[in-house]
């Protein structure tokens, strides 16, 4: 297509529009977190007051601790289960393959609300009090599909010549696994773990149904604060969270580069 053609210009303007659309909310958050005003309208001067308030807020501290704790534990468990399941799925003749694949893929397209409702009712049926344990279980459940798929997709593009070479050289199976195969799987495992971590810290709906009163994660706290109208510190909190996720992504890139070299 000619560079100056009508369609190209149309695409470019659509792209610019979408970019503005995507970035407006984030820019607003960052700008208004430094605004010296109780309501979020009009510029009243620069301040860092809300950042200071943020660090004095015990509820936010607690919610932050909960979020990190849940994210770390559910990432660990879902990644370990994911590695095992991906290795199991490698064997195409294995009878449980179809069932496991269905159990892994179906949760991905289901609306979150259905998983939230069904888990809430399960915990009620079992008389398990909602709190940290139930949130942990829920987070492992929705992260597991993603970790299995990410690790499995890396295994599919796997270079078996190395494994075969090790076998030809007479290495024992477990030695082959730990010395040859596992190191090659590491980038996939890291990618899966980071995905699980971000999914966990971002989740609202499923946590909302499984957390009950007294165990707030950050998204739950933020939603409550929006509802109660106590929103002054949220902009500051959000800006820090944007910064935190960006940092996470940049370190991921670094780690991945280090691992691949």
């Amino acid at each position: 297509m000619k560079p100056g053609s009508l369609y190209r210009r149309l695409n470019l303007s659509a792209f610019t529009l979408v970019m503005i659309f995507l970035y407006i909310p984030i820019l607003i958050l960052i700008i208004f977190s430094f605004n010296n005003s109780k309501i979020v309208a009009g510029w009243k001067g620069f301040t860092l007051k809300y950042y200071l308030l943020l660090f004095q807020n015990e509820q936010i501290k607690l919610a932050f601790q909960h979020t990190v704790m849940i994210a770390l534990t559910s990432t660990l468990v879902s990644t370990i289960l994911g590695v095992l399941a991906a290795l199991g799925l490698e064997n195409k003749r294995f009878k449980g393959r179809k069932v496991l694949r269905a159990l892994v893929y179906v949760p991905l397209i289901m609306p979150d609300i259905l998983m939230g409702v069904s888990l809430a009712l399960l915990f009620n049926f079992l008389r398990v009090g909602t709190g940290m344990l139930t949130v942990f279980i829920a987070h492992v459940t929705f992260c597991l599909s993603y970790t299995v798929i990410v690790i499995q997709s890396r295994l599919e593009g796997f270079d078996y010549s190395l494994v075969e070479a090790a076998m030809d050289l007479g290495a024992k199976p477990w030695l082959i696994f730990w010395k040859v195969k596992f190191p090659l799987m590491v980038p996939g495992i890291v990618a899966a773990a980071l995905l699980a971590f971000t999914l966990s810290i971002d989740d609202f709906i499923i946590t909302f149904f499984t957390s009950g009163r007294g165990f707030d994660t950050l998204p739950i706290y933020v939603e409550g604060a929006i509802r109660r109208g106590t929103i002054t510190t949220i902009n500051a909190l959000s800006t820090l969270m944007v910064g935190f996720t960006l940092l996470l992504v940049i370190t991921t890139k670094r780690i991945r580069k280090l691992l691949l070299n």
Partner: peptide, 22 residues
């Protein structure tokens, strides 16, 4: 195949208990 069952079992049990049974 037995190995695959062992490897898949934790995820199979987890997803059955917390995705299908609910």
């Amino acid at each position: 195949n037995l190995q695959s069952w062992f490897l898949s079992m934790p995820s199979l049990i987890w997803l059955t208990a917390f995705f299908a049974v609910p």
